[in-house]
Amino acid sequence: MKPTDELTGMLVLVHPELTQDPANNQGKIGIITGAELEQDDVYVSFGKGEQALYSTDALLVFKPEKDLYTTIMTDAREAGPEVFKTLFQINLMQQHGTTSVMKKAMEMVADNKILRDLSMDTLENRLANQLQQQQDQSFSR
């Protein structure tokens, strides 16, 4: 399966601090409907026929479950009990993985920079990490 196929249907948060967004969707949650990664083009739908084009560094996704759990156990404790509790709740929500549950989780962090920084990463970084992991696995065989 191509990476672009794997992205279709993925929930993303348009970075709330995005300075230039002609569609004016900063902080909104959408679903990836297609991607041309060679051009760094990701098509995101926001429902009701509204679609916009973004680069991978403008879209935020949750860290993988195990990475978020590590963050919770190391960095979140210093951020305070409310942050710790919310991140732990999000990590549990990831285990259900349904779109509606994950949308609710994104809504919980969308307006809180500390929670966003601890629980999310850019799609660009996520794809780079996945590529690195695939290369590491190829070399270890």
Rank of each mutant, 00 (worst) to 15 (best):
S138C: 08
I29W: 12
M108A: 15
V101K: 03
V42S: 02
Q134Y: 14
M10S: 09
V101I: 13
A79P: 01
T122A: 07
V14M: 08
D136G: 05
L60P: 06
K63R: 15
S100T: 05
F62T: 00
D21G: 02
T74P: 08
R126I: 00
T8W: 03
D41I: 01
M93C: 01
P3F: 06
T71H: 09
L127C: 13
T70I: 03
S138Y: 14
P16Q: 00
N112C: 10
V12C: 06
M120K: 07
T70A: 12
E6F: 10
G80F: 13
D57C: 03
L123H: 02
T98W: 11
T33N: 01
L13N: 03
D57A: 09
E82T: 14
Q135W: 10
G49Y: 04
T86R: 14
T99W: 07
N24C: 10
T70Y: 09
E50A: 11
V101Q: 09
L87T: 03
S140M: 10
F62G: 03
T4P: 04
L127V: 09
S119W: 06
E65Q: 12
L92W: 07
L18M: 07
D111A: 12
M73W: 10
Q39E: 04
K48R: 15
M108F: 10
G30Q: 05
D121N: 10
R126D: 00
S100W: 08
M93H: 07
Q51C: 08
N24E: 13
I29V: 15
P22A: 08
